[in-house]
Design a binder for these strands. Structure first.
Lengths: 335, 335
DNA sequence: CTGAAAGCGCTTACAG
DNA sequence: CTGAAAGCGCTTACAG
């Protein structure tokens, strides 16, 4: 039905081996032979069948990126960066939405799409490293996001403790005294909330400010809705905060919405810092001060490491990459 | 190396055919046989090899969604909806970022990932139906977005003329007289800008308002940046508008930013309407009035139609689906 | 229901 | 460089 390698070989008057060599850019092909083959490929509009190739080679040049939800701005931007980084290297990214709980594990469990996938980058919500270890199907796997526990996987993350320290210290440097934190309970098993709170508390302590549990809001998620609700709680306090460090930008945008509704000025009454540097925050009014992880760096290095693992013999030691970040000071703290 | 179908058959004491029957849910399997096979599958942790299956059956149960950029909120939300709709039906969505120009055509040209993909949903930016027709590799293809020209493909779109008419009429009903439009030049060959302008002008005409070319801004793209720049142009006019209909929400969010910077009140001084209903607009302050296409409906029906085409004998007549929408009135016009 | 076998379209030793 | 052939792991007629 479809044109096959052998059709191309017949038309070019060479062996299938030679056609395969041309397609795969192997050496020892004369320019003349190559030209003949390429002409035949063009004439027949031939495209290699990736299923056959994948079956034969045991490699598909597909990798998966498993994220909680692709419509969330941070992950959407990450997905875009991964796709670009992978395309540059001739491989394709399959984006999997885990949508929380068990679905995440199930993905890994389900054998990485029936062996179609060469490796996976996994941003877990509820899965602990132990669970993932039990479920992993032996293919290369890189974890994204903070890992409090050791685990046996490569992992890539921002130094969240340091970043949270920097964000909080920035607020302190503005003279703020009652600095709240929104999102301390978030991030599930990957411990985002716990890790960022650590940096937050550390900064307070370094400045001689006692941390007030009433100012640490857990919330139920990391979306605008949660940020808005947490901010309402904070405003209802007998002594509301004069600054808020939100553990991601969506929380911060929700908080800003509540502050606007309450008629409070930002940063006049309350200064706000986020985390992630999503595009919405840059255009918001006021624009959002935030921790900006280098997403391109993250995608590039993670894809490179994964491909190294896929190609590698296997037993290299576990690697841990730290993503560079900057603190982007914008109107929400420097109006 | 990996466990194969034959390993499962051997362990269960049945033929490979029977194992295959169990996996593919074919009839005429006794409960006892099924149980034996399933036990063997579980014991060996067997997962079918999708490359082999795909090679043999000529179907992969993968479809592609080709969109301009996945980090753009509307497309991110669409991608999420497609993934869910597909997963429900046991198929997987491969999201391709075309990033504009020729890349879009290239995707279609490149033979849909070497025949891995069963069909494609394509949201073109610059490709005309004619170009796509020439490049299509014969597999089912559905176009997303307005098609001014006929084309020979199935397509799914909002009735943008009517939606733009509704949005503009809403502004007129608020008593606005100088209603600008941002984005009239956008959407490339798919003609989003032209189609929405048509509805916009129609509404003005119906209300007896002459349309003023100075109030129709083309801009270069459909992002916040473009909306912000266009709004600045409008404010520099001798007679600035008292309302703006932006052809997508990103343009509207950019415009709102410019208005905030200029110290103008929304909707007091200028009322703003968008198109797409992305989450950012719902939480923005002021929240954004917008045309809200039913994205779940879109994804569900498009996936269903594509699967019908893939399964179908082929020569059914071209189908055109119209996506339902509502006008969501929020603070930016009803503060 | 079973068993033996062909074939999907590649890649890759193997012998020249 | 070429040619003939095996084999990746499935599905599916085919004969029983």
């Amino acid at each position: 039905m479809a044109t096959r390698l052998s059709d191309v070989a017949a038309r070019a008057g060479v062996s299938v081996k030679t056609v395969s060599n041309v397609i795969n850019d192997y050496p020892h092909i004369t320019a003349h032979t190559r030209a003949k083959v390429e002409a035949a490929i063009a004439a027949l509009d031939y495209r290699p069948n990736v299923s056959a190739r994948s079956l034969r080679k045991g490699r598909s040049d597909f990798i998966a990126l498993a994220i909680p939800e692709m419509a969330s701005a941070y992950f959407a931007e990450l997905g875009a960066a991964f796709s670009r980084a992978a395309k540059k290297r001739g491989i394709t990214v399959l984006i999997e939405q885990t949508e929380g709980e068990s679905a995440a594990e199930q993905l890994v469990l389900d054998g990485m799409r029936g062996q179609l996938i060469d490796g996976i980058v996994f941003s877990p919500i509820t899965s602990t490293p132990a669970k993932i270890g039990a479920a992993a199907s032996g293919k290369p796997l890189i974890l994204l996001g903070e890992r409090t526990t050791g685990g046996t996987f490569d992992h890539v993350a921002v130094d969240s403790v340091q970043a949270a320290f920097d964000a909080t210290t920035h607020l302190i440097s503005l003279g703020r005294q009652r600095i709240a934190a929104i999102g301390v309970g978030g991030g599930g098993a990957s411990g985002t909330g716990a890790v960022r709170r650590k940096g937050y508390r550390k900064a307070l302590k370094a400045a001689g400010i006692a941390h007030d549990p009433a100012l640490e809001l857990a919330g139920t998620g990391y979306h605008r809705l949660d940020g808005a609700a947490s901010m309402r709680e904070l405003l209802a306090l007998p002594e509301p905060p004069d600054a808020v460090f939100c553990f991601n930008d969506l929380l911060a945008l929700g908080a800003l919405r509540t502050l606007a509704d309450a008629g409070l000025s930002v940063p006049g009454d309350v200064a706000v810092v986020g985390f992630d540097d999503i595009e919405d925050g840059r255009y918001h009014s006021p624009s959002l001060t935030t921790i900006s992880p280098d997403k391109e760096w993250l995608a590039e290095h993670t894809v490179a490491l994964l491909l190294e693992r896929i190609a590698g013999s296997g037993e290299a030691e576990r690697r841990s990459l730290t993503v560079p970040y900057t603190l982007e000071i914008r109107e929400s703290t420097a109006g």
